[in-house]
């Protein structure tokens, strides 16, 4: 096993078990080893050291058919602590991985429904625990299915492996409300940025919740002052793959004026859509300091005396 010489955030440096996908489309991205194509995955299914994880919005979708050998990790019921609004701790995370045959050195490829929305969320939680080799299947479940590739309802029965109990790193890739408050002066001075990835109506404050998701509302509408508005799905192409590097740069760099050395905090409503943007900025565009604020609008929009901007201007 050789460690690849690539620039990755300090917390997730480590050996990669399987060689990276050398597809030319991926080569343009800052960290091409964070993506695999459907061709690569089809060719590598069953390889020792690889575990494929499906993570969906729909809790039953995996059970209707999945990539052969893939295991399921459900964000709502498995990665969330059942009582406190937080992620599971190191002990529980070690159990979740171990019982799915994921060891600390395993290459984990995530895929899912809805442009890999929940797959990137699961990957981000794995990154909080410093799991080194995490990758996304470009195009996710939709592309695999559209290409007529094999699906099965057969449940894999992986042998349980030992996964170490690792303390979650809540500093490097994660931001809390107080961190965001402390970040605001940097946003004003131009050294830092905030990216609001929700829909335009949520950003302006017309909607107190995401279209079609009234259950996750807030008592105040609007956005965190200074935040750029970039709805997360703009980073996805029609076929659910990520847009090319040039297209992504046109959105985040040229149009929004962000740069790769900015200190960036991304947020949405509960932190899932913004983990997609976190992935895009960190791994596809090579931003060095991006944190995901998982409290997001369901915390900020309900918090007392935090600043709020309304309307379509950053404020």
């Amino acid at each position: 096993m050789t460690a690849l010489r690539v620039s990755v955030p300090r917390t997730i440096v480590g050996a990669m078990a399987l060689p990276a996908d050398t597809d030319p489309k991926l080569a343009d991205y800052a960290h091409p080893e964070r993506l695999v194509t459907t061709e690569w995955l089809a060719a590598n299914l069953g390889t020792e050291g690889l575990v494929v994880v499906e993570s969906d919005e729909d809790v039953l979708l995996y059970d209707t058919g999945h990539i052969p050998g893939a295991v399921k990790v459900d964000w709502h019921t498995e990665l969330n602590d059942p009582v406190t609004r937080d992620y599971v701790d190191g002990t529980r995370f070690a159990e979740i991985c171990g019982e799915r045959g994921i060891g600390r050195d395993t290459t984990v490829v995530f895929y899912g429904d809805r442009n890999n929305w929940w797959a990137t969320y699961a990957l981000w939680v794995f990154a909080l625990f410093g799991h080194a080799d995490v990758r996304i299947l470009d195009g996710g479940r939709a592309k695999w299915v559209a290409e007529g590739r094999e699906m099965t309802t057969e449940q894999p029965t992986p042998a349980t492996v030992e996964y170490p109990v690792v303390e979650r790193d809540d500093v490097t890739l994660r931001a809390f409300k107080d961190d965001v408050l402390a970040h605001l002066p940097k946003v004003r001075s131009g050294d830092g940025a905030l990216v609001d990835v929700r829909s335009p109506g949520e950003y302006s404050g017309e909607l107190l919740h995401m279209p079609d998701y009234p259950q996750e509302g807030a008592v105040r509408g609007g956005h965190i002052p200074g935040a750029a508005s970039v709805p997360w799905a703009r980073a996805a192409a029609e076929d659910a793959t990520f847009r090319s590097r040039a297209e992504l740069e046109a959105i985040y760099l040229q149009e929004q004026g962000l740069s790769a050395d900015d200190d960036v905090v991304a947020y949405c409503r509960i932190g899932e859509r913004s983990s997609h943007t976190w992935f895009v900025l960190t791994h596809l565009l090579g931003f060095a300091h991006v944190r995901n604020y998982d409290g997001s609008w369901t915390e900020w929009g309900n918090a007392v005396r935090v600043p709020v901007a309304q309307g379509s201007e950053r404020g």
Binding site: D58, V59, L61
Partner: peptide, 9 residues
């Protein structure tokens, strides 16, 4: 749609 089994359920 079949991609929404929970909703169908």
């Amino acid at each position: 749609p079949p991609e929404a089994p929970t909703t169908r359920g």
